[in-house]
């Protein structure tokens, strides 16, 4: 199995995570969406030197994974392809921002190092939160609920199709790299000389398949509404739970909890 194929299986397996059952799975899609959006917005808004305050934010996704009964490591193993990209953000900061913020032992910690860390943490935390949302919520149900709030049909369909097409794209990459490696034994990856044609082909094939898929949906009566979505009944605790979580997240943003705890004990 090549990397691309594994990626497809991983992506497809989201469906399986999503159809599990847990307290978190039973919450209404929109309430989870709201909490995730609030979490991401507030996490991103931390100042770049606010390491300790930001650190505390990890508690929310961690609790979420517990409630969803999904091991946190699933998120990291599924997303290991994206993690380096997230981590790469800000690696240059230490070179630009060299003023010393504090010292640990004899070592000077510069603003650049701290801001690099906060950037990485923001990326990873937001990724954890988005993955949790995807793993516990069916995209069709989410779109249906957005439509109920008069969210534009176009945009709701767009969210759905983007999700569907991602798997088409990875499918095609898997099929093509497999075909390639069968005829280029012993080669690692795709030789740079064929990248151009490979990408061109990939685009054409993906578009063809996306067309067919869309046709198949339209032929079965899809017109941008999501009547078919969702067998699951949302728990009536959805919105109270969402309100509580949002309040906790806002509080954690406003109050530096680690500093507060520290001051209590010192």
């Amino acid at each position: 199995m090549n990397d691309a194929e594994r990626a497809v299986l991983d992506l497809r397996a989201m469906d399986e995570l999503e159809s599990m059952d847990s307290p978190l799975h039973r919450l209404s899609p929109l309430s989870k969406f709201t909490v995730t959006a609030v979490y991401i917005a507030l996490t991103a808004s931390f100042g770049r030197y606010d390491l300790t305050g930001l650190l505390f934010m990890v508690i929310f996704p961690l609790i979420g994974y517990q409630l969803a009964m999904i091991p946190v490591r699933t998120c990291f193993s599924r997303l290991k392809g994206v993690l380096p990209l997230v981590a790469a953000v800000g690696v240059l900061n230490p070179f630009f921002d060299r003023n010393v913020l504090f010292r640990i032992g004899g070592i000077a910690v510069t603003g650049g190092v701290v801001s690099m860390l906060t950037l990485m943490m923001k990326g990873v935390f937001c990724l954890m939160a988005s993955f949790l949302l995807m793993a516990t919520t069916a995209v069709d149900e989410l779109c249906r609920d957005l439509r109920k709030l008069h969210f534009p049909k176009m945009l709701a369909s767009l969210i759905l199709l983007t999700f569907r097409y991602t798997s088409v794209l990875t499918d095609e990459v898997a099929a093509m790299t497999q075909a390639y490696s069968l005829r280029a034994p012993g080669q690692k990856g795709i030789h740079i000389s064929v990248w151009g044609t490979f990408l061109g082909q990939l685009l054409l094939r993906t578009m063809d398949r996306a067309d067919d898929l869309y046709d198949a949906m339209v032929l079965r009566g899809f017109n941008g509404e999501f009547h078919y979505a969702g067998g699951r009944k949302s728990s009536r605790w959805s919105w109270p739970a969402a309100a509580l979580s949002c309040a906790a997240i806002v509080a954690a943003r406003l109050v530096n909890v680690p500093a507060l705890l520290g001051s209590l004990f010192i």
């Binding site: 898929l213 046709d215 198949a216 032929l219 079965r220 899809f222």
Partner: peptide, 25 residues
């Protein structure tokens, strides 16, 4: 319409989801 390529015909997670997609629409 049964398409030539079944991979392009099925777009829901499970077989049953796909089967009720049309009728519910």
């Amino acid at each position: 319409f049964v398409l030539q390529d079944p991979d392009n015909q099925m777009f829901m997670p499970k077989v049953i989801d796909d089967m009720i997609f049309g009728p519910v629409n």
